[in-house]
Design a protein around this nucleic acid. Structure first.
Lengths: 150, 150
DNA sequence: AATATTTATATTGTATACAATTTAATTGTT
DNA sequence: AACAATTAAATTGTATACAATATAAATATT
């Protein structure tokens, strides 16, 4: 572990850091979803929950959290709201009473058709070439995979 | 605007979307900063504010917001906390009384030396090659630039 | 000059996020 | 079986984020 030759000035410049554009880009892109998701009555995180349920089917709070990188402190209140809106059911598992099973209602399942508009609209809004998008996704997944290890 | 041939099923898969890995990766990377930033008594967003001030010098709330992609609803309460901690000053401009000038205190300026450890520690924590980091940053900046236009 | 428009912050309200703790159920050990 | 350790959600507390609105100051218009 040798002394790093780069001075504090350079190290701390926003443009020299990976994390800042990552943070800013994520926020700005998510923000662009809002008008399209408003039409579905969903927030971005709720939309993620719905996509996970549409794709993988019914699960538990914990499994949902592992898939979406969210913990129960975020999910529990959000799932309660979504249950109140009639999109899903929260049922304590009889098999393992620690678990709460999340399942889609008919309304929740039906919302999928309307939701297909969202990625299409965003695709037109973002103007990222398919190549750039693929490369970006690849690099982000690589970091996510690496970061999970420790 | 022709009918898109890709079915809803495919469009709505988490793995087929750029935004989800972007969102998840940003969150997970920011979370890794926490232990290092705790030593400085900063949150990640506060760290961004400090980096902007160290790099660009004193500014106004609005300019800070444009640089960091944050609005006054986020910045005002946060800057008040940072002022209370003695890191910066908030002074209503006499020249234009709508503006609030943000300037570093001696303590805030001094924190820069300790903060240089943070990007070094994160660099070791992330294990991203310089090439991947450069490519990723380039693509993220490209999206951020494109998204600002509309 | 008086009024309208724009601009810069601040405030309000809603929705995440997550660390830390709590509670209750299940599993592992002796 | 009894107790310890682990696991799954829920809760608590703190800190963003941002849309919408409010407020006040500066600028533009008539």
């Amino acid at each position: 572990m040798s002394t790093n030759a780069i001075p504090a000035d350079e190290l701390l410049k926003l443009e020299n850091q990976l994390c800042f554009p990552l943070y800013a880009c994520s926020k700005e892109v998510v923000r662009r979803y809002t008008p399209f998701l408003d039409e579905l009555g969903l927030t971005y995180t709720q939309y993620l929950v719905m996509m996970a349920l549409w794709e993988y089917g019914n699960t538990s709070v914990g499994e949902l959290g592992r898939r979406l990188f969210l913990d129960s402190g975020t999910l529990t209140p959000m799932l309660k709201k979504m249950e109140a809106k009639g999109l899903l059911r929260r049922v304590r598992s009889t098999e393992d009473e620690r678990r709460v099973e999340i399942s889609l209602t008919a309304d929740g399942e039906a919302l999928k058709e309307k939701a297909a508009r969202v990625p299409i609209a965003m695709g037109q809004c973002l103007t990222v070439s398919p190549e750039d998008a693929a490369e970006l996704t690849r690099l982000l997944r690589k970091i996510l995979d690496a970061i999970q290890v420790d």
